[in-house]
């Protein structure tokens, strides 16, 4: 395959970026998208040019490190797939592919295609946990949990924290990410104990990070490589409403 690549290049956070066009021959359709970029980088290196910075690690679709917006879609055209599991056979010979970083004020571009997603960690730090210290736990089978409920919680817990939801959202809202954790923990009896405090704190932190507001566009769900449902957002809204009006937090 022969490809034309239009790739966003930006030397650092505070320097203006622009698109550069590269052409790449002999791309095998068995290559993964990131391997294609590896090949381009190796080529750039030998032309004494600076290789393109992009993030990746596990390359099996679970660590959430890879990102990229490919032809306008976070993680590319294939639904339910991370960029690292996207293969070149999903593109046509001679195609022009536009590769951009995630765009959101809360995710500043660090270099080229790398962005800072630390805001997501800070949302978890605000309350995305169950406060149980090591050694405090009772026997694992002490609390039975309905299989369906556990499975529902699991669906929410499969979030890999890649931030595609924010990138896909025209409002750059982080509601899907935040709600996935809220839902995972609120559904389980262990998590119910501090559910009110959790949702209030996590939403507060989410707002502080300058994410946009959800207007139920559902692009997040469509682009989520793990198919996390927007029903989690409704659940979070519910939790937040009830916590706002009934929790003991007077603020």
């Amino acid at each position: 395959m022969k490809l034309t690549l239009k790739i966003w290049r930006q030397p650092s956070q505070n320097v203006k970026g622009k698109f550069e066009t590269y052409s790449l021959d002999n791309v095998s359709e068995h290559m993964s998208f990131l391997e294609m970029l590896d090949v381009l980088n190796e080529k750039l290196s030998f032309e004494q040019k600076v290789p393109i910075a992009f993030e990746h690690d596990c390359r099996e679709g679970i660590c959430g490190t890879c990102s990229l917006v490919i032809n306008g879609q976070p993680h590319g055209p294939l639904q339910g797939t991370t960029t690292c599991q996207l293969h070149m056979r999903n593109f046509k010979d001679g195609e022009t592919i536009v590769i951009e970083p995630y765009r959101a004020s809360a995710f500043p571009v660090l270099k080229d295609l790398s962005v800072d997603r630390g805001a997501l960690d800070r949302i978890i730090q605000a309350g995305g946990f169950i406060s149980v210290s090591t050694g405090q736990a009772q026997d694992a089978n002490a609390i039975p949990i309905e299989k369906d409920v556990a499975s529902h919680a699991f669906d929410a817990a499969t979030c890999i924290g890649c931030g595609a939801c924010v990138a896909a959202c025209p409002n750059s809202s982080a509601m899907l990410f935040t709600s996935a954790k809220v839902a995972h923990l609120a559904l389980l009896p262990q998590g119910k104990v501090e559910a009110q405090k959790r949702v209030l704190n996590m939403v507060r932190q989410m707002d502080l990070e300058n994410f946009g507001n959800c207007s139920n566009i559902t692009a997040c769900e469509a682009e989520c490589p793990k198919g996390i449902s927007v029903s989690n957002i409704a659940l979070m809204n519910r939790e937040f409403l009830s916590a706002s009006f009934s929790s003991n937090d007077a603020n």
């Binding site: 169950i130 026997d139 694992a140 949990i145 556990a150 389980l188």
Partner: peptide
């Protein structure tokens, strides 16, 4: 025990146990 207390959603049976 620790993981369950943290909310790790292990597979369960219909009776609700692990």
């Amino acid at each position: 025990d620790q993981a369950v207390a943290q909310g790790v959603p292990f597979a369960r049976e219909y009776g609700g146990l692990l």
